[in-house]
Computed example of a mutant assay.
Amino acid sequence: MSLPEQVREVTDTYLRLVDAAVPDLVQGLYLHGSTALGDFSPGHSDIDFVALTSHRPDEAEIGALAAVHEELDRLHPRPYFDGAYLLPADLAADPDRCPDIPGCHETRFEPSGRIMVSLVTWHELAEHGVAVRGPAIAELGVWTDEGALLANTRNNLRTYWKRWVDKLDELAEKEPDRAVDPWFVEWCVLGSVRLHALLVTGRLHSKGGAGRWAVRTGAFGPRWVPILTEALRIRSNDDGPPTYGDLRHRLRDTRDFLATVVAANET
């Protein structure tokens, strides 16, 4: 696929920097997330990557990688370049068996951790991954387990996203000016509905794709079309008038829609 210009600029810069800092270490570079799903949105999307290395980086190489990401962040502060350094054998097995590995999330580089080590990453790569460098995705033999992916998705809604319902209540009470930030609308509405869409359709969706699916199919009925439309407007950088004249009403609908998505997947 043809990469968005901003994505191409960042990946080209990254490969130039990493090849100079640790020659021959990064043998493959693969993109997943919104870029691979054809829904990259400037100002909203990050660039999610997996770098396949020839070996586990040693201490000196990890230090060099940290410097690479620091320089990349200086040259391209946004979008964030988030990802992990894996071996091909890691992708060929259950991610639960993967050891802690170097990775970067937003501006934080972790010498050893679990950034991007998840079933979602493995499935996105296997089904939609984009090869910037290295063998075609089909040649990597990426391990997948649809049953485990769906079970983990339900659990994510029942735990992580259920906690966000309470967080929005707390924000509305204690920090009402912050709570009307449009970020919360996009994050909660589209972040939760993409999981629901996976459970209903059996297919991975981007945030924007899931929101459009929910509107198109009437998945939650007409009651929730305004908040879905507003979340999509925010994500698309549409400067037109908001769907809601009252931002506190928008916050209440964000909270109530999220609670509806969670409740729909509790049984």
Rank of each mutant, 00 (worst) to 15 (best):
L3C: 02
L3S: 01
L3M: 01
P4R: 02
L15W: 00
V22F: 04
P23A: 02
P23T: 00
L29W: 09
H32A: 04
H32Q: 11
G43D: 06
H44Q: 13
H44G: 09
D46N: 07
I47D: 06
L52T: 00
T53C: 11
R56M: 09
P57N: 02
P57Y: 00
D58M: 03
A64R: 05
A66K: 11
A66S: 14
A67W: 07
H69Y: 12
H69P: 12
L72C: 09
D73P: 13
D73V: 12
R74K: 13
L75E: 12
H76E: 13
P79K: 07
D82W: 06
D90R: 01
L91F: 03
D94W: 03
P95M: 02
C98F: 01
D100Y: 04
I101D: 00
H105I: 06
T107F: 05
S112Q: 03
G113D: 00
T121W: 00
E124L: 15
L125H: 05
A126Q: 07
G134Y: 02
A136N: 12
E139S: 13
L140V: 08
L150H: 12
N155S: 14
N156C: 14
Y160S: 15
R163S: 14
W164C: 08
D166F: 14
L168M: 13
E170I: 13
L171F: 10
A172F: 09
E175L: 10
R178W: 14
V180M: 14
F184Q: 10
F184T: 15
E186I: 13
S192A: 14
R194S: 09
L195W: 11
L195S: 13
A197N: 10
G208Q: 05
G209D: 08
A210T: 13
R212Q: 13
W213D: 08
A214D: 07
G218H: 12
G218F: 08
R223H: 14
I227A: 07
I227L: 12
A231R: 06
L232D: 07
L232G: 01
I234Q: 02
R235Y: 02
S236C: 03
S236D: 13
P242W: 01
P242E: 01
G245C: 08
D246C: 09
H249F: 12
R252H: 10
T254K: 05
R255E: 02
A263P: 01
A263T: 06
T267C: 15
